[in-house]
C-alpha cells in the first residue's frame, strides 16, 4: 500500500561487489519535512540519496514518490523522469553556463518567456536577482550553493535531495544559507532528505533524523529525542560528550554516585549496566562531607558554556557543563550532583 508520504523507501539493499553499502533500509519523508541522514563517512548516506534519485538502481526494495512506485524489482524510472531535485556537495554547476542558464537547464521550454520569468523569479527568491548573468566561477561559495538550489527548485520537484550542501561554506555563511534554503523548501512543501555528518547541523534544521551506521538506519526520531534517548553509545557520543554513570536499584529508585535519578526514562544501554547522563544534567559545587569528591583536572571553555573534566580516585573522567555566565569554579576539589 502506498501511503500519502512524499517519499517512501522500503527495504532498500544495495551492494558494491561484496560490500553491502545499504542494508534493508526503510524510510518515509512527509511533504514539507526536512529529514536528515546522519552518519560517518562510508555509512551509506550518499548511496541512499543516489538510489532515491535514480542514479543508482538498488538490488532490493522499493522507492515511491508521491502516489507512484518509481523503482522496484520490475521497473526503474530513470533520474531524468523523476521529479527529484538534487543539490550536490560540490554544487555541480555547469561552468560554461551563467547562473540564469544553469537554472534554465532543466526546464522544458527554455526559450519561452514563461520559463525565463520563472527562472528569474526562483533566483530572486534565493537572493540572486542581481547575479543572473554571472558565471559560476565569479560567484562566492554561498552564491554558488544558492544557484544550485534554485536550479533544483525550478522544476518544482516532489523530493529534494541535499548531499552535504553546506559543508563548503564558512560558519556564518553556512547558517545564513541553511536558513534560506530550508525556509524555501518548507514553504514549497517539498519532502527533503539532507545528508550530513554534522550532528549540530542535523539538530538545528531537521524535523527528523535517521542515524546510519554500516549501511543500516540505527535510529530514526526527532533530533531532541535522539539526543536525549539514543539507542546506543555510538549515537550518544556522536551528538556530544556523554557520561556513563553506574547506578543501583534501591526500593524502585535509581541511585547514582551523584544522587537519585528522577528522569522519565532510565536511559541505560542494553549492553552496558550504567546510566547515560549528559554533562548539562550534572552540576558542580563545593566539596560536601560524606559525598564522593572529585578533582577538577581540566576546564574547557566553549562559547556559551564551560565544560569541567573531573576525576575521582581511579574513576573515569566525568564531564560537567555549566553556563559561561555562572561563576567559575575556583576550588580544586568538588562535589558533583545531578541537577
Amino acid at each position: 500500500m502506498i501511503s500519502q508520504m512524499g517519499l517512501e523507501i522500503q527495504n532498500i539493499t544495495h551492494r558494491f561487489g561484496r560490500l553491502e553499502a545499504v542494508q534493508d533500509v526503510t524510510l518515509s519523508v512527509a511533504p514539507g519535512e526536512i529529514h536528515c541522514l546522519l552518519g560517518p563517512s562510508g555509512s551509506g548516506k550518499s548511496t541512499l540519496l543516489r538510489i532515491i534519485s535514480g542514479l543508482l538502481r538498488q538490488h532490493q526494495g522499493t522507492v515511491s514518490i508521491g502516489e507512484s512506485v518509481v523503482s522496484d524489482a520490475s521497473k526503474h524510472q530513470l533520474p531524468e523522469h523523476r521529479q527529484v531535485g538534487f543539490v550536490f556537495q560540490d554544487y555541480a554547476l555547469f561552468p560554461h553556463l551563467n547562473a540564469l542558464r544553469n537554472v534554465l537547464f532543466g526546464m522544458s521550454a527554455r526559450r519561452s518567456q514563461v520559463s525565463q520569468e520563472r527562472a528569474r523569479q526562483v533566483l530572486a527568491d534565493v537572493g540572486l536577482g542581481k547575479h543572473l548573468e554571472s558565471m559560476p566561477h565569479t560567484l562566492s561559495g554561498g552564491e554558488q550553493q544558492r544557484v544550485a538550489l534554485a536550479r533544483a527548485m525550478v522544476r518544482t520537484p516532489n523530493v529534494m535531495l541535499l548531499d552535504e550542501p553546506f559543508s563548503g561554506l564558512d560558519v556564518q555563511l553556512r547558517q545564513d544559507v541553511r536558513e534560506t534554503t530550508l525556509r524555501v523548501l518548507r514553504a514549497s512543501k517539498i519532502s527533503t532528505v539532507m545528508v550530513t555528518h554534522d550532528p549540530a547541523e542535523a539538530m538545528s534544521c531537521a524535523d527528523r533524523v535517521s542515524v546510519m551506521y554500516g549501511g543500516q538506519i540505527v535510529q530514526t526520531d526527532q533530533p531532541q529525542s535522539i539526543y536525549r534517548d539514543p539507542v546506543d553509545d555510538r549515537i550518544a557520543r556522536s551528538f556530544g560528550l556523554v557520561n556513563l554513570v553506574s547506578f543501583e536499584e534501591r526500593d524502585g529508585r535509581c541511585v547514582t554516585p551523584f544522587g537519585e535519578w528522577t528522569g522519565e526514562t532510565r536511559r541505560s544501554f542494553k549492553q552496558q549496566d550504567c546510566l547515560f547522563v549528559r554533562p548539562e544534567e550534572l552540576f558542580i559545587g563545593p566539596p560536601v562531607d560524606g559525598e564522593p569528591q572529585y578533582d577538577v583536572v581540566r576546564m574547557i571553555p566553549e562559547a556559551a558554556t564551560v565544560i569541567y573534566e573531573v576525576r575521582g580516585n581511579g574513576t573515569p573522567a566525568i564531564y560537567v557543563r555549566s553556563l559561561a555566565t555562572e561563576p567559575r569554579i575556583e576550588f580544586k576539589r568538588v562535589s558533583v550532583r545531578l541537577r
Binding site: R50, S53, G54, L55, L78, P79, E80, H81, R82, V84, G85, F86, F88, Q89, D90, A92, F94, F105, G106, S108, A148, R151, A152, R155
Partner: peptide
C-alpha cells in the same frame, strides 16, 4: 568534468545523449 555534473544534468531531465550534447 566531475561526475556530479552528469548526475545534476540527469536529475534535471537530460538523457545520457542530452548530457553529452549539452554538458
Amino acid at each position: 568534468i566531475p561526475s556530479t555534473m552528469d548526475h545534476a544534468a540527469r536529475t534535471l531531465g537530460s538523457s545520457q545523449v542530452g548530457v553529452l550534447r549539452r554538458v
